[in-house]
Amino acid sequence: MSKEKTVLIANRYKPRDRSDRGGMGEVVFCDDLHLQRQVVLKHLQAGVGAQRLLDEQKALSKVRSKHVVQLYDIVNISVGGVQQPAIVLEFIDGETLNVGSFSADANYLKVIWQISCGLTDIHSHGIIHRDIKPGNIKIDGEGVVKILDFGLSRNSANAETMSIIGTPLFMAHELWGNNKITFDSSVDVYAFGVTCLALLTNEVPLSLLSRPPSQPSRKALSALFAGVHSEITDILHQCLAADSNDRPAMRAIQALLAKHLLKDRHRATVVLNGSANTLDCKNRRISLNATVGSLTIEYDGLDFKVIQVAGAVYINNTSVAVRTVVPGCCVFTFGNDGARKFVTFDVSNPEVMP
């Protein structure tokens, strides 16, 4: 007797002998026979509102990011004889991030930078993920981090809820209200801060376990982030602020982490009187003398800073002072009125790689 023929889904997806079930949904691993690739088909369990899957569809259909799981297709399947929608997602051959599995090193910074990239892309499309945590993040075989599970996501224009929902440790202060709760993308920033901490240790400050949580002290966080640059600890501490207005934007976090990952790899070109000079880790200091004013800039591996200035010197028409951080692309002006001289300053932008 011949074996029973496998029934294809949407005349295209062949189920494998593997599936996983979560709190609200079930995923079935399939082969896409058209494009010869493995995919994940996700549908909701009986009794779970269809709005959950609809929210995930809407979110994923907007976002195109290297660090966000991709939506490939929407199909109908039969579950218990009832037709219901299912989404077909990118299959990520990798490991879910685990609590306490990282050390404060360059690899850790690359991982949290990639998470920040994914969240920056998500927020740029007006989407709030609302369930950022290690269990919803994977890292594939090539070291690329992917954010998953948009079942609780909301559009920024419709970000409110009548119930407390989410993963308690990662829920921001404002999500613990008793009545209608309004929120914005800063709830993801808070969850990102807790995730960064959770990847290093499972011993979180008690203030984060209270309901609602309160911001731990900077000193307490310093001990847990031992080995992380103080500038990074500062911004992660801001992520945990009880007031959402005090939390930084994900784009600012992304930029700061990138700066540290690129330590000693920046290069600036300084042009005075038609002569170009390079400022980098091999040539860390340059002095510019334009007769009507002088300036010395030093590269400390992270920033280009003014360490000496004399006379009338301006950056993009703003007066220069010692300790000023020079922006990536600008013009220095030496002197006033007809005696002015100009210097261009341009920093290359090397790419941070996973």
Rank of each mutant, 00 (worst) to 15 (best):
K5F: 12
R12H: 06
P15D: 03
P15K: 03
R16V: 04
R16W: 03
D17Q: 10
S19G: 01
R21N: 10
G22Q: 04
G22S: 07
L33S: 11
Q38I: 09
V39P: 00
L44F: 03
L44P: 01
Q45C: 09
Q45I: 14
A50W: 07
R52H: 13
L54I: 13
A59M: 08
A59I: 02
L60M: 06
S65D: 10
V68T: 10
V69D: 01
Q70I: 06
S78L: 14
G80T: 01
Q83H: 07
Q84M: 12
Q84A: 07
L89E: 02
E90N: 03
E90A: 04
F91R: 00
G94R: 06
L97K: 05
L97F: 08
N98D: 11
N98I: 10
N98Q: 15
N98S: 12
G100I: 08
S101A: 15
A104N: 02
Y108A: 06
K110Y: 07
I112V: 14
W113E: 10
Q114Y: 08
S116T: 07
S124F: 03
R130P: 07
R130L: 04
K133R: 15
N136I: 09
N136H: 09
K138I: 12
K138Q: 13
G141E: 11
V145N: 08
F150P: 00
G151S: 06
R154A: 15
R154L: 07
A157V: 07
A157Q: 14
P168Y: 05
F170E: 02
H173Q: 11
W176I: 04
T182H: 11
T182Q: 09
D184P: 04
S186F: 03
V187C: 12
F192I: 06
A198L: 04
T201P: 05
V204N: 03
P205F: 05
L206V: 15
S207K: 15
L208D: 01
L208T: 02
S210H: 15
R211S: 13
P212G: 10
Q215M: 11
A223M: 09
L224Q: 15
A226V: 09
V228I: 15
H229M: 01
T233F: 00
Q238E: 14
L240R: 02
S244T: 11
S244N: 08
S244H: 09
M250E: 05
M250C: 10
A252I: 08
I253H: 07
I253R: 09
L256Y: 01
L256C: 03
A258H: 06
A268H: 00
S275K: 14
D280P: 02
K282H: 13
L288E: 00
A290R: 09
T291Q: 08
V292N: 04
L295F: 01
I297C: 01
D300Y: 04
G301E: 05
G301S: 06
G301D: 07
I307Q: 00
A310V: 06
V313Y: 02
I315R: 09
T318D: 12
T318L: 10
S319A: 14
V322W: 04
T324V: 04
C330S: 13
F332K: 05
T333R: 13
F334S: 00
N336A: 08
D337F: 13
A339T: 13
R340K: 12
R340Q: 14
N349T: 12
N349Y: 12
E351F: 06
V352N: 05
P354I: 12
